[in-house]
Design a protein around this nucleic acid. Structure first.
Lengths: 332, 332
DNA sequence: TTGAAAGCGCTAACAT
DNA sequence: ATGTTAGCGCTTTCAA
């Protein structure tokens, strides 16, 4: 049998209530009493039984973090940032992988409900209404990534894709480019749609005629072929890729056509799923700061559960243009 | 107030004991009764309060997974595999990042103890004795990566580095190489030591005189410089890198010296921390299957907690030689 | 085959 | 400033 609060109370010569209050700093205690309790805790190696605590207070110290795929390098950094924040507030992050499977996402939410979590961050690219409904019904604070409207118990993190595209185009225009093409993502993905729309809107605003736009699939291979097609139909001197993989594919394509990058073909990507260390030095990217997302996700939840104010909020995450330095020798 | 087991019992017209038993399949019930209960559960949208359950049974459904850094691409795959296994057994994986910080690792373990977890996988490259002691004291099943001796409540996963090095050398010898160099990792890392020792042992067994060996730091840059040094002091025609980053550095170095890889310089890496999609096509690697590690970690724990047999076991993970195909065009 | 009821370890309202 | 004690929702022994 593990050491319980009773043991500590006995050892310190106080009541369990006092021990509880000392440990949770939930009411004033004489320094001497406090001291005795802490000593007893130390001597016995006591640690609070969270199950009992959670049962008593009605909510756990766990926060759910639902991701479509932890293997996608976009997520580990978000996860780490989220956890670091949680730690500061004596919470744990329970990370759940859905593998892009809606049913599995729903199961995850059910399990989280059973675990009495007070809040959940759902950072998948699509969210079934049944999921958000279930969370809201249970009054569990939820935050989504670029998907939800703010509501009771519902916050949203808005990534400023438009800003990012603007930065990318601005960058290319300053380099003298006028013939700029776009390689988009899968047309069913909200974030892909927004980036494409932003490209056209901002190009128009800058008085630039887009040199073609082709939808692709956010992979290196897809980027390669889309770029190939684009180069055949138009003659862009620069390309904005819907994400970095696409952009890397475009760089490969340029290489095969003996177009020296970035001189003869400038490529800008959208750094939302790559592993920075392996990204091509020649690639300039609009970065979506991952730590910021993780941090915002936690804060969105914490805001709702710690204040008891169920009203959600909109959190905005800024993008940033990254021009990479070639620290290591250029890869073959 | 959430719907509780009492509500279900009332709705189904049975006792809470019956509901509990039906849900946990812990004793026979008449199909009709069973049916009623399940209907009530469905209608009310009931989900078990895990906190209460854990309190009653004395252990939680959470399993700890302690990692030094989730951002290291070695770990997400392990994590995913571990979680998938856990899911099959109705367990949750609580992933904790230590950021290579011993104190933080200790804190993590304390929190896990408080959470009443029945088992923990500690997949860091070093483990402080106080940590393993604390776990063993609390009779928490633990599994370590290539570190611990099997004991009560202690299992170990042994990665067959020797096998991997043997595969690498075998591969190179079959290609006709006789002058083979080695670029090792930090000399304080147990896994680096074992790889280096294996290199010498197996080279000797094959009757090969090693063409130099230089310790490095498991980074691309470090690999570059170590390779540079090695090429100046010896004339290897092939190199075994202690890990993939080192090997990639060696490839860069070969490129800068106009040594065409793999023809003029064959390089074999050890794929334990890279992100596969970005690894050089020219690189052959000894792969440590990450899913296997995650799966083994879960099974090691599950073995101990589900059978009630506290004796640990040794789990062995095989390596595999991977020769990459250039699916995408070679990067610039 | 089912039910009644005693805890599991903690918190928090109420008492002192 | 501290103690007493009634739950929190579930499991499980014992009884029917």
């Amino acid at each position: 049998m593990a050491v319980s609060i009773k043991d500590v109370a006995a050892r310190a010569g106080v009541s369990t209530a006092t021990v509880s209050h000392v440990l949770n700093q939930t009411r004033n205690t004489r320094p001497a009493t406090r001291q005795k309790v802490l000593e007893a805790v130390e001597e016995l190696g006591y640690s609070q039984n969270q199950a009992a605590r959670n049962l008593a207070v009605g909510r756990s110290s766990l926060l759910g973090l639902i991701l479509s795929d932890i293997r996608n390098p976009f997520f580990p950094e978000i996860t780490a940032a989220f956890q670091d924040q949680a730690l500061l507030h004596h919470m744990e992050a329970l990370v759940l992988n859905t593998n892009y499977d809606t049913q599995r996402t729903l199961d995850s939410v059910k399990r989280l409900v059973g675990l009495q979590v007070p809040g959940v961050a759902v950072l998948t690219s699509q969210v079934d209404p049944s999921i958000s409904a279930m969370l809201q019904d249970r009054k569990i604070a939820a935050v989504y990534l670029d998907l939800a409207r703010v509501d009771r118990y519902v916050s949203n993190i808005a990534i400023q894709y438009e800003q990012g595209i603007a930065e990318a185009l601005d960058h290319l225009v300053k380099l003298g480019h006028r013939r700029i093409g776009f390689l988009g993502g899968p047309p069913h993905l909200p974030s892909a749609i927004r980036r494409k729309k932003a490209f056209f809107d901002i190009a128009a605003k800058l008085g630039i005629e887009p040199a073609g736009a082709i939808d692709s699939d956010f992979t290196v291979k897809g980027g390669y072929f889309a770029c190939s097609k684009l180069l055949s139909s138009a003659q862009p001197t620069a390309i904005v890729g819907g994400n970095d993989l696409t952009a890397i594919g475009a760089l490969h394509c340029a290489f095969d056509r003996n177009l020296k990058a970035p001189d003869q073909l400038s490529v800008v990507g959208f750094d939302d799923i790559t592993f920075a260390e392996y990204t091509q030095p020649a690639l300039t990217s609009v970065q979506v700061p991952r730590q910021d997302i993780g941090k915002a996700a936690f804060q969105a939840i914490w805001q709702m559960i710690s204040t008891g104010n169920s009203a959600g909020q909109e959190y905005s995450v800024q993008t940033r243009l990254i021009t990479r330095q070639s620290t290591a020798p250029a890869p073959k």
